[in-house]
Structure formats: structure tokens, C-alpha cells
Computed example of a mutant assay.
Amino acid sequence: MIEISLKTESTELKNGMYDVVREVLEEVLGDLEKEKSPALLTRSQLAKEIFNVNIQTVDTHVLSRPDFPRIYVGSKPLFPRDQVMEWIRKNTLSESLPYGISHLKKAKEA
């Protein structure tokens, strides 16, 4: 457990310092968790750790897409964590692009 104590007169400064320290700690702890997790994910890990949904939802809405990154070891599909995160970033909905960036590029090519 990490405990931090600040002594200051200003509550605003104290709260600001706590926020900065918390953000740094969250980033460091996130990096440590990422190092613990495998570079290649199974279908189950993908559903649970990345999308936080059940396997059927991942099968229906994600793995059915031909552009979703995967490799095969024998006949078993595995999903490269870094490529999956990049795919999510590229395909995340935004207010100005209703189907994500990759769909916009495909529409321009057509």
C-alpha cells in the first residue's frame, strides 16, 4: 500500500497535488499490469480483459469483422494485445465520425 501525506494550508493546492500523484500512480500501476498480461490474448481474455463483455458478444460484434487483428497458432486464433488496442483506437466512435476513422477512409476509397 502506498500512503501519501501532504501538509499545506491551501486545500486547493493539497487537492491538486493529490490529483497529480494519483494520476502518476495510476499510470505506473497500469504499466505494471500491462507488463503482467500476455502479448497474445485468447478469445476469453479478449472478452473479459479488453472488452469487459461475454464471449458471445465479442464473437458477434468484434471477431466477425475481417479487419480485426488475429494470428493463428495451429488452428487456435490469438489476438495481439497491442494491435487490438490500436484497432480499438482506430474504430472508436467519435462525434464527428459516426463509424470511426477506418470507415471514413473506406468510404473515400469507394
Rank of each mutant, 00 (worst) to 15 (best):
I50W: 02
I50A: 04
I50Y: 00
F51C: 03
N52R: 13
N52V: 07
N52K: 15
N52A: 10
V53I: 12
V53C: 13
I55Q: 12
Q56E: 14
Q56P: 02
T57Y: 09
T57D: 00
T57N: 06
T57K: 03
T57H: 08
V58N: 04
V58R: 04
V58Q: 05
V58M: 01
D59F: 07
D59H: 03
D59G: 04
T60I: 10
T60F: 05
T60V: 07
T60L: 12
T60Q: 12
H61N: 15
V62Y: 14
L63T: 09
L63Y: 09
S64K: 15
S64R: 13
S64W: 07
S64M: 08
S64T: 15
R65S: 12
R65P: 03
R65A: 12
R65I: 01
R65Y: 03
P66E: 15
P66F: 09
P66N: 14
P66A: 15
P66C: 07
D67S: 15
D67L: 10
F68D: 04
F68Y: 12
P69F: 09
P69W: 08
R70M: 00
R70T: 09
R70H: 15
R70V: 03
R70G: 03
I71F: 05
I71W: 05
I71Y: 08
I71N: 06
I71L: 10
I71P: 01
Y72C: 08
Y72A: 10
Y72D: 05
G74D: 09
G74R: 08
G74L: 10
G74H: 09
S75M: 12
S75A: 15
S75F: 06
S75T: 15
K76Y: 10
K76L: 14
K76N: 15
P77R: 09
P77K: 06
P77N: 10
L78I: 07
L78N: 06
F79T: 06
P80K: 05
R81W: 03
Q83W: 06
Q83R: 12
Q83L: 13
V84T: 06
V84F: 02
M85A: 04
M85I: 05
M85L: 15
E86W: 01
E86P: 00
E86N: 04
E86I: 01
W87T: 00
W87C: 01
I88R: 03
I88P: 04
I88G: 02
I88N: 01
I88Y: 01
I88E: 02
I88D: 02
R89A: 07
R89H: 05
K90C: 01
K90L: 07
N91L: 08
T92Y: 02
L93W: 07
L93N: 04
L93A: 10
S94Q: 11
E95L: 13
E95I: 09
S96C: 02
S96P: 00
S96N: 14
S96R: 13
S96V: 11
S96A: 12
L97E: 14
P98V: 10
Y99V: 01
Y99L: 14
G100N: 06
I101G: 02
I101M: 11
I101Y: 14
I101K: 13
S102L: 07
S102Q: 13
S102M: 15
H103Q: 13
H103L: 09
L104V: 08
K105S: 05
K105Q: 11
K106Y: 08
A107I: 12
A107G: 00
A107Q: 13
A107S: 13
K108W: 11
K108H: 07
K108I: 14
E109P: 04
E109Y: 06
A110G: 13
